[in-house]
């Protein structure tokens, strides 16, 4: 019962964070109000609402409704997990070099909390698209843009507050993080092919040896 009550307050606090980002993100780190499991829940919720959107949004706004075979739950989950993972890694890697104060856990927490507006906008869109028509498509795009924009602002504020950067520095660091993500992906792909080559090489030797035995 006590745990449930804690969970309730933690969840409620997330709404405080997204409405008062400067204060909220500060408290997440310094007052130890941040919970990584809450961040994780938001990430999972994002994946779930994304799938629900594709499944239940009205056909007017959602071409996938007639092609449910193209909706990929596992794929969405792993791509989100991968992107967040790379983001956290690149963020941490760069900010530790540039006097950032946030630990990897801090970064993960503020990223997770920042996803809340996206989740909310997607939840709102499910009933809304089933009432609105083409003529009101602007409302739908407005909500989508609001969700994305709000999340972007939260990510910016979160980075600034958690690492204790100035506004300009945060902006540059964020650009650098995006670049870092690209580099990580590139190196990852490179590494993958390299391993494949090595594996092939080893396997060829093994085959050769076996044939000559």
């Amino acid at each position: 019962m006590e745990k449930l009550k804690n969970f309730g307050t933690d969840l409620k606090y997330a709404f405080h964070v997204i409405t008062h980002p400067l204060d909220g993100f500060w408290d997440l780190k310094h007052e130890k109000r941040g919970r990584s499991y809450i961040a994780l829940i938001f990430l999972v919720l994002y994946v779930i609402t994304d799938i629900l959107n594709k499944q239940f949004n009205n056909y007017t706004f959602n071409e996938l409704k007639v092609a449910p075979q193209d909706i990929d739950l596992i794929g969405t989950f792993f791509s989100v997990a991968l992107i967040v993972g790379i983001w956290v890694a690149a963020n941490w890697g760069l900010t530790t070099l540039f006097d950032g104060e946030g630990s990897m856990k801090d970064i993960f927490i503020y990223t997770g909390y920042s996803m809340l507006p996206l989740v909310l906008s997607q939840i709102i869109l499910i009933p809304l698209t089933n009432v609105l028509t083409v003529n009101e498509a602007t409302i739908v795009s407005l909500i989508t843009v609001l969700g994305i924009g709000w999340t972007a602002i939260l990510l910016y504020t979160g980075t600034m507050t958690t690492h204790q950067y100035s506004g300009g520095k945060t902006f540059i660091i964020l650009l650098a993080v995006l670049l870092g993500m690209v580099i990580i992906v590139f190196v990852g792909v490179l590494f993958f092919f390299l391993v494949q080559e090595i594996w092939n090489f080893g396997f060829t030797i093994y085959r050769e040896l076996e044939l000559r035995r």
């Binding site: 009205n58 056909y59 007017t60 071409e63 028509t133 083409v134």
Partner: peptide, 8 residues
Amino acid sequence: QEEYGKAF
């Protein structure tokens, strides 16, 4: 999709 939108 277009005609659907109109009927809906």
